[in-house]
Computed example of a mutant assay.
Amino acid sequence: MRVEIWSDIACPWCYVGKARFEKALAGFAHRDEVEVVHRSFELDPGRAKGDVQPVLSMLTAKYGMSEAQAQAGEDNLGAQAAAEGLDYRTRDRDHGNTFDMHRLLHLAKERGRQDELIQILYRANFAEERSVFGEGDERLVELAVEAGLDGDEARAVLADPAAYADEVRADEREAAQLGANGVPFFVLDRAYGVSGAQPAEVFAQALSRAWGDRPALKILDEAAADACGPDGCQVPQDRPTAGKPQVSADI
Rank of each mutant, 00 (worst) to 15 (best):
L158K: 14
G148K: 02
Y192S: 04
F186A: 03
R173F: 11
V183P: 04
E201T: 13
P199R: 10
G182S: 14
A180Y: 06
G179V: 13
Q177T: 10
A170S: 14
E174H: 12
R190W: 04
S195W: 02
F186H: 09
E174I: 08
A206I: 05
E174P: 03
D160M: 08
Q205T: 03
A147V: 11
Q205D: 13
A191L: 11
A144S: 03
V202I: 07
L143D: 03
P184V: 14
G151K: 01
A191Q: 14
S195D: 07
A176P: 05
V145G: 03
D152E: 14
V187H: 01
A159T: 14
E174S: 11
E201C: 00
G179F: 06
G182R: 05
V202T: 14
V202P: 00
D152M: 09
L178G: 01
N181S: 15
G193P: 09
V202G: 02
N181Y: 06
L207E: 12
E201N: 05
A175N: 08
D171Y: 05
A200H: 11
D189E: 15
A162N: 13
D171Q: 10
A197N: 07
E153T: 01
E172N: 04
V194Q: 08
A156G: 05
L207H: 03
A154Q: 01
E201H: 04
L207C: 12
F203R: 01
E153M: 01
N181A: 08
D166E: 14
Q205F: 12
D189A: 14
R173Q: 14
G193Q: 01
L178F: 11
F186G: 02
R169D: 11
Q177Y: 03
F185W: 15
Q177R: 15
